[in-house]
C-alpha cells in the first residue's frame, strides 16, 4: 500500500513538473496562436540563469526563482519585438521553421557561453532529502514541486482565465482589429502576454533542471514532452494543461512501476488515445 501511494505521489509530482514546463507554451500558443517551439529554449535559459545566480553569485534558491521569471520574461519580450511580431500573421509551418531554427541557435549559444557539459546544481539543504508524511517517505524536492505547481496553477487560472486582463488577451487573439478599435493597445498586450509565457517557461526550466539535468541539448530533449502536454490539454486552456500534465505524469510513473518492460511507451500510447478521443485536446475550444 505504501509503495502504491509513494508511486502515486511521485506521479503527481512529475505531473506538476510537466505542468510548469509546458504552461509557458500553453499561454503563448493557446492565447496568441503563435507556435513558439523556442519556448523550450527559454526553459533552458531559465535553468542556466538559476545555475549562474545560485552558484556564481551565491543567491538563495527561492530568491533566484523570481529573478529567473523576470529575466527570461524580459529576454522573451526582446525576442518578440525583434523577431516574432513579424510572424504573427504567417502560417503555422513558417512559425515552426522559424522557432525550431531559434532552438538550434540557442543550443549553439548555450554551448558557447556555458560549455557542452552538464551543470552542477548545489541545492540548499532544506530542499534535499526526504520527509515523512502520513507514514510515507517522500522526497522534499517533489513536495516543494507539488506545492509550487499548485500555487502557480491557481494563480494562472484566476489571473489569465478569470480576469479582465485575461479577457483582453483573448479578445486581441480572437479579433485583433476589433479589439484595437475598442481601444485596446494590442501591441502592448501581446508583448505582455509573451513576457508572461516566456517567464513561465524559464521558471519551468529552473524548477526541472535539478531533476532532469541541464546541458545545451535540453530544449530538444524535452520539447516533445512539452508539446504532448499542450496538445493533449488543448490550446489556450491552463486548466486543460494542468489536467493533461497530471494525467500523463501519473500514467507515466505508474506505468513504469507496474509494466516496466513497456518503459516510457505508455505516455505516447495515452497521447494517441487522447488525441483520437478529443482531437482539439481535453478542454480545447476547437478550431
Amino acid at each position: 500500500m505504501a509503495s502504491i501511494l509513494t508511486v502515486l505521489f511521485n506521479g503527481v509530482a512529475y505531473g506538476f513538473l510537466l505542468f510548469v514546463m509546458s504552461v509557458g507554451l500553453s499561454v503563448t500558443l493557446g492565447m496568441m496562436n503563435f507556435v513558439n517551439l523556442a519556448q523550450a529554449s527559454f526553459s533552458m535559459l531559465g535553468g542556466y540563469i538559476l545555475v549562474t545566480a545560485m552558484q556564481g553569485y551565491g543567491l538563495p534558491f527561492l530568491l533566484c526563482l523570481p529573478i529567473v521569471f523576470v529575466l527570461v520574461g524580459v529576454v522573451s519580450v526582446v525576442v518578440e519585438r525583434l523577431i516574432f511580431r513579424h510572424f504573427y500573421k504567417t502560417d503555422d509551418l513558417t512559425q515552426v521553421l522559424l522557432t525550431i531554427g531559434l532552438v538550434f541557435m540557442s543550443i549553439a549559444m548555450a554551448t558557447y557561453v556555458w560549455g557542452g557539459t552538464y551543470q552542477r546544481f548545489d541545492m540548499p539543504s532544506w530542499i534535499i532529502g526526504q520527509k515523512e508524511i502520513f507514514g510515507l517517505t517522500l522526497e522534499t524536492y517533489r513536495i516543494f514541486l507539488v506545492g509550487f505547481g499548485a500555487v502557480m496553477a491557481v494563480a494562472l487560472i484566476f489571473g489569465l482565465e478569470r480576469t479582465q486582463l485575461g479577457a483582453m488577451v483573448r479578445a486581441c487573439v480572437d479579433n485583433r482589429r476589433v479589439a484595437g478599435a475598442c481601444g485596446l493597445n494590442t501591441e502592448l498586450i501581446f508583448a505582455f502576454t509573451f513576457a508572461i509565457g516566456g517567464g513561465l517557461a524559464g521558471l519551468g526550466g529552473a524548477l526541472s533542471a535539478n531533476l532532469l539535468g541541464l546541458d545545451p541539448n535540453f530544449p530538444l530533449r524535452y520539447l516533445v514532452y512539452i508539446l504532448i502536454v499542450v496538445s493533449v490539454g488543448g490550446m489556450g486552456t491552463i486548466t486543460g494543461t494542468l489536467i493533461a500534465a497530471l494525467a500523463l505524469g501519473i500514467a507515466d510513473v505508474l506505468g513504469k512501476y507496474y509494466f516496466p518492460q513497456f518503459g516510457s511507451f505508455i505516455i505516447y500510447l495515452l497521447t494517441v488515445a487522447f488525441m483520437l478521443w478529443r482531437p482539439h485536446g481535453l478542454l480545447g475550444r476547437g478550431a
Partner: peptide
Amino acid sequence: NLRTPLSNPEYSGYIQRIRD
C-alpha cells in the same frame, strides 16, 4: 532486473520497484 528506455527523464517508478 529492469531495462529502462533511452529517452527517460523520470526514474521514480523504477526506483520504487528496486525498493520493493
